[in-house]
Design a protein around this nucleic acid. Sequence first.
DNA 1: GTGGTTGCAAACCCTTTGCACGGCA
DNA 2: TGCCGTGCAAAGGGTTTGCAACCAC
Lengths: 144, 144
Amino acid sequence: MKVQTTSYRELIARQGLRVTPQRMAILEAVHKIGNHPTADQITDFVRKAHPNIASGTVYHVLDTLVQHQLIKRVTTDRDVMRYDGIMESHHHLYCLECNDIQDYVDVELNALLQEYFKSKKIEGFEIKEFVLEIKGTFNKCKNR
Amino acid sequence: MKVQTTSYRELIARQGLRVTPQRMAILEAVHKIGNHPTADQITDFVRKAHPNIASGTVYHVLDTLVQHQLIKRVTTDRDVMRYDGIMESHHHLYCLECNDIQDYVDVELNALLQEYFKSKKIEGFEIKEFVLEIKGTFNKCKNR
DNA sequence: GTGGTTGCAAACCCTTTGCACGGCA
DNA sequence: TGCCGTGCAAAGGGTTTGCAACCAC
């Protein structure tokens, strides 16, 4: 389950990107923080080891990583960007109370959707990926 | 298919909100513009009839309408807010090329998801609503 | 060596906020 | 009339940009 530091180097190099300490640290941060960190949280995390990293660099690197499919941007209805290190197909639980976004992995659901859209084409549109937004409330958030 | 202006008045009043020209105009704008307008597009549209409306008011009213479930916010991975006047359960096509977001209505899909989650509960989470993000490319955007 | 990356800081722009006036109920 | 809603303008804050120094290849 634990990802080795060396893996980050490989992942970056494999994309034909230059391997820099900042890129490795940011990719590591997105994985280690988990729970869809904001750029701000990532910056804080990375500064523990790289105190001088500029926030502009963080945004720039995050953008590069997204473009090379090493991380994803999470869709939200708010105005801060969140990132996700899990590249396997998965879904998201949006809590309407605490605004937290949790991963929801469900292989069976993936298969169901794949199967459904195998027969039901969408006119003029080629599907690459699904993400189901499941909106509701965590039980722990019920009484607030 | 066409929504009467009087309907907007009713929709607003039904929520126990004061009916103001600005609220009617903004609710109308979200419906008439369609295609998930930004606050900016909405402001432009509304100013044709209400040249003096303040952008602060537009944001404030949009927020009120969202809270009273007269419109929805659309989730995006970018940093501008988009709004949606369709309140019935539906899904979204995200074009990875042109970044356009199109509505996708599919009653059969709704039923399929309802059915699936009737038997498959999510531990500690109560589901209120689904939105499937379908990411891909429109055929018209293929060669860019 | 050299072209892509980073650090820094200012600019940007979307959104929020505070306050006084205005208009809906 | 009372109070919520609006207009205005400034503040706020997340993200982008420009440029010189730096460093991975």
